[in-house]
């Protein structure tokens, strides 16, 4: 009995929070099923509309608080696109800003207790990363034609080395969407899972004497990891966006 209660009390299900399940009953997740993932994506969309549309409806020269947050985000990403990808990349700004806002809102809303984090799923991040990859590749070929392949031909290297380097460059080019997507999903998943693991230790005080020491420690650890996760939530959105800008720069200015 005691052992069973022990296992009942310390239930380790750190990955349960990532399960995609239908919101209104049923077991199967079809393409159009409204799931918890759908719900939290919708909440992100609504939050984005609230901040960037409702928050700026005053169009004030002296902004309200919400408007200045929206302006801050706009300025932040706009400057990033301009500085990293160049001035002619500004026409991709709405596209990049869409990715940034979606990731940042999903990451932060996912930190709410009981929330679901769409960006912790490789399916979501892979779609975004592949989207960026295809965009960048198509833009590169449309703008520069075959010259875009010069990106892989390191003309500053000695001639015998160039084919080898070209092979490495091609491989690294195709690995981009993989690392781009796994970096974001992995970070989000790992942080949330670690919080859940520590959370599973927290009720130990109800079961065993060791809990007197373990419970406060685990609560402290949850707090610390949570603080770290707040940082990670922003940094990963930033990293995803700036990498998008870097790839875009390669497409617009492929000179090596």
């Amino acid at each position: 009995m005691a052992t069973e209660e022990h296992s009942e009390g310390l239930a380790f299900h750190p990955m349960d929070q990532f399960i995609v399940k239908p919101l209104f009953g049923g077991d199967t997740v079809g393409v159009l099923t409204v799931t918890n993932a759908t719900l939290w994506m919708a909440i992100s969309v609504l939050a984005i509309i609230a901040l960037f549309v409702l928050g700026t409806r005053g169009r004030a020269v002296i902004p309200s608080r919400t408007q200045s947050v929206a302006e801050l985000a706009y300025g932040f990403v706009h400057k990033m696109v301009e500085d990293v990808a160049g001035h002619d990349a500004v026409k991709f700004f709405p596209y990049i800003f869409t990715l940034f806002t979606f990731i940042v809102f999903s990451n932060f809303l996912g930190l709410l207790p009981k929330a679901f984090t769409p960006t912790s799923h490789i399916a979501v991040t892979a779609v975004m990363a592949v989207g960026v990859f295809l965009t960048v590749t198509i833009v590169g070929f449309v703008k520069h034609g075959v010259h875009f392949l010069g990106l892989f031909w390191v003309s500053s290297a000695p001639l015998p080395l160039r084919p080898v380097l070209a092979l490495i460059e091609v491989i690294s080019y195709f690995v981009r969407p993989v690392s781009h997507s796994i970096r974001l999903a992995g970070n989000m998943m790992a942080g949330h899972a670690v919080i859940k693991v520590f959370a599973a230790f927290a009720p130990l005080v109800l079961i065993s004497g060791v809990g007197i020491a373990v419970t406060p420690l685990s609560i402290l650890a949850i707090t610390a990891i949570y603080a770290l996760e707040i940082l990670v939530a922003f940094i990963q959105a930033y990293v995803f966006t700036i990498l998008t800008c870097v790839y875009l720069k390669d497409a617009l200015h492929p000179a090596h």
Partner: peptide, 11 residues
């Protein structure tokens, strides 16, 4: 498919 569909809609 579900996640991708709703992600594309959201984006």
């Amino acid at each position: 498919p579900n996640q991708i569909f709703w992600l594309v809609v959201a984006l």
